[in-house]
Design a protein around this nucleic acid. Structure first.
Lengths: 147, 147
DNA sequence: GGTTTTTCCATGCACCCGCATCGAAAAGGC
DNA sequence: GCCTTTTCGATGCGGGTGCATGGAAAAACC
């Protein structure tokens, strides 16, 4: 029976706990101000950067499950931040566009989101340590090889 | 408007993505073998180490919400892994005990869990880097100061 | 062209979570 | 002792997630 090294277990628990604390702080901060959760921000940002996209492209870009995107877009359309349009060259799909409200919402969320990230991470780790951290996390930031 | 440093944003995205990938791999591995999710393991381990505990102690030890523990214990009792007993010196609470099945379940989960951790983390980061990673994550592994 | 396979997206269902709240027991104030 | 406050744990409700599946369009195959 394989027993992970002590350093592995320590890094493991710290990694999970750190991510939990950080993302929790972020989500809480947004919610307390009546703003949408972080994943909405990611969608808004992706659309603002790349223009209209199809759900499957967003899915690939954001790395979430297909049904998650489908329902996330539902909610955001219902909230008036996005618009579904029929896709000209593929009748199965749609193209998703930002509305004005969506654009404004991203702008409204950013300062709050940025501040939360700064508090949760920037202010707690020195510049050089952040660089080292990013480098060490790089190999872990992609899916475990197709199990 | 505060704009986090580039190193902060990079570390941020890597941290969240790494934790997501790692914990996902772990949960998937257990699930595919018909085993309970990781949080059940944590409860089983805590009880095996410290003997019977009260829900509020487990809550503090595991750092989850009160209602989460309440319902998690419900499910685990229903699955036959735990037992609730009246608490002798506090009629509001209970003491939670492992059953034989709970003990066996933890033993059954460990090799699988350990292997998944090894694959998701141990095999992807060198020994010295794991040490450095744990050190860098330490300040982040506790809740953001009471916001 | 017709048939099979694959891609794209939605959705029913069961489950889990977060919030707010509740009832009951203990602790504290006097 | 009595009253107020705090602690302990459960739960109804709305909503999000994962799984499996469905239907329709496109692509691939022959």
């Amino acid at each position: 029976m394989v027993m992970p090294a002590a350093t592995t277990l320590l890094a493991w628990t710290r990694l999970l706990r750190a991510a939990e604390c950080a993302s929790q702080h972020c989500a809480d901060t947004l919610r307390k101000l009546g703003l949408p959760p972080p994943e909405w921000y990611d969608v808004l940002l992706a659309l603002e950067r790349s223009g209209a996209q199809r759900p499957r492209d967003l899915q690939a870009a954001l790395g979430v499950e297909q049904y998650a995107i489908s329902r996330l877009l539902d909610r955001m359309v219902k909230a008036g931040l996005l618009e579904r349009r029929p896709c000209p060259d593929d009748a199965r799909g749609h193209t998703i566009r930002l509305t004005i409200e969506g654009l404004e919402m991203r702008a409204a969320m950013w300062p709050v989101y940025a501040e939360a990230i700064e508090v949760a991470l920037g202010a707690r780790v020195a510049e050089e340590d952040r660089t080292a951290l990013a480098r060490l996390l790089a190999p872990l930031a992609e899916p475990v090889s197709a199990a």
